[in-house]
Amino acid sequence: MSSSLLQMNTIFISILIEALPFILLGVIISGIIQIFVTDEMMAKAIPKNKFGAIVLASVIGALFPACECGIVPITRRLMAKGVPLYAAIPFMLTGPIINPVVLFATFVAFGNDWKIMIERGLVAFLVSLIVGLILAFQFKTPQVKNEIHVHTASKKMSEKIGEALKHTIDEFFSVGKFVIIGGLIAAAMQTYVKTSTLMALGHGAVSSNIVMMGLSYILSLCSSADAFIASSFRSTFNDSAIIAFLVFGPMFDIKNTLMMLSQFKTKFVFSLFAYVFILVLVLSLLIVH
């Protein structure tokens, strides 16, 4: 077997080993929410005012230390409990970027640099706010596949735990296949696609940002590790393109696009992709110099 194929397999396995613990954590939290959080609790927690709900969701996402693989099932489950689309999606978008672990990693990777860390957080926050506002006006329905019905019957604790476990395992099998396919594609990209051909596509103000966003999409890095990779591009790209890389990747990459497609309607995932893409591009160009 050719050595590059073996290298691809090794990268694939390492992506799985890195992602699986966090996906398990995500599906376990999702299972717990499914059984122990009631619609009434959620309805009380979410502000009636749409804008308030979006801001709150972005802030909670920011406090919630999740990675981009674990957060999709959690988001889906929150929606089953009555969290509206326009609040759930901002939570999903800020969750992997704005949290203490990722921001500290960014700070260290860029060597004592407040600028990149703050800009990363700021651009991510604005993107998720604006996306939330657009969604609040555009979509009146949840946009999910196979509406999940919530178990409301009150049960004994032991039964509840059994149910939660069953949901956890179901969820694992519903997202697991996409993690495997996503990991395979990302590993193939890393092994066979030359980064230099991608980078040759653009060095202008707009094109270099698009190139870096494309790169972060296909590399599918974990959001707490991507800053170290991004910092090595500092010799080739300006800060604006670096921020575009750091914000777009955790919001959309190969793995989590497939996971979203398994949970949300295809048309919705494509609109969300378009909004995030355009907003990251425009805001990174406007805010970062």
């Binding site: 073996l6 290298q7 090794t10 890393q190 092994t191 030359k194 090595s232 500092r234």
Partner: peptide
């Protein structure tokens, strides 16, 4: 288990933290 080598350097390229 494969080891990353120049083949991957070709694909990934290299940059220095200048």
């Amino acid at each position: 288990v494969a080891t990353l080598d120049s083949n991957i350097v070709e694909a990934k390229g290299f940059h220095f933290p200048i």
